[in-house]
């Protein structure tokens, strides 16, 4: 990968990649693996990018696809272990960000299903419903309802934690 490509096409979007990868990983090691894989996939698929959408949309789409695929692979590997117990332990012990509120929010997001995580991340990144639907390849009509439901669920989780 040329340094130029990394500097101009990936690095400015690193915050997006970081936010997404953090939502799908529990450890720093996994996070770094996912981050690298996302960068690699962005570089690999750069020729497929058609300028019908924004580059940032492309980055979101690849980041989510890579994270979901890696997560699926990892789950398959862990199917004989007590996955739930292991992941819960890791989530509680993981403090990736300086601010405690955002760490708690991430803990709550990680309790959602993989797709709900993607929806809420994109919503929080102020993507339109149409854009969220485009990125996830779904119908934009039910995104709003889904966001509302996810927000309620997150609120319940967060309130449960604080009280």
């Amino acid at each position: 990968m040329s340094t130029d490509f990394y500097q101009t096409a990936i690095l400015p979007y690193a915050p997006i990649i970081i936010k997404i990868c953090r939502a799908y990983t529990d450890t720093q090691e996994d996070f770094e693996d996912y981050y690298q894989e996302v960068c690699l996939q962005i570089w690999r698929s750069k020729d497929n990018f058609q300028e019908q959408s924004k580059w940032s949309t492309w980055v979101y789409r690849i980041s989510l696809n890579v994270c979901l695929t890696l997560l699926k692979k990892r789950k398959r590997k862990q199917e004989y272990t007590d996955f739930k117990a292991a992941s819960h332990k890791a989530v509680v012990g993981n403090r990736a960000f300086e601010n405690e509120e955002i760490n708690q929010l991430y803990d709550a997001i990680k309790r959602l299903s993989e797709v709900d995580r993607a929806v809420i991340l994109l919503f929080l990144e102020e993507r339109s419903y149409q854009e969220i639907a485009d990125i996830l390849g779904t119908n934009p009509n039910n995104i709003g309802v889904r966001v509302k439901r996810i927000k309620e669920r997150l609120k319940k989780i967060l309130d449960g934690k604080t009280h």
Partner: peptide, 27 residues
């Protein structure tokens, strides 16, 4: 938690959180 999640998301990330990108290498 009092704050809406949108506010937490907007305000809470520090510069360091998002600028400290993992070093690429040994892909």
């Amino acid at each position: 938690m009092e704050k809406p999640i949108e506010t937490i998301w907007k305000e809470a990330f520090s510069e360091r959180d998002l600028k400290e990108v993992p070093r690429l290498g040994n892909f």
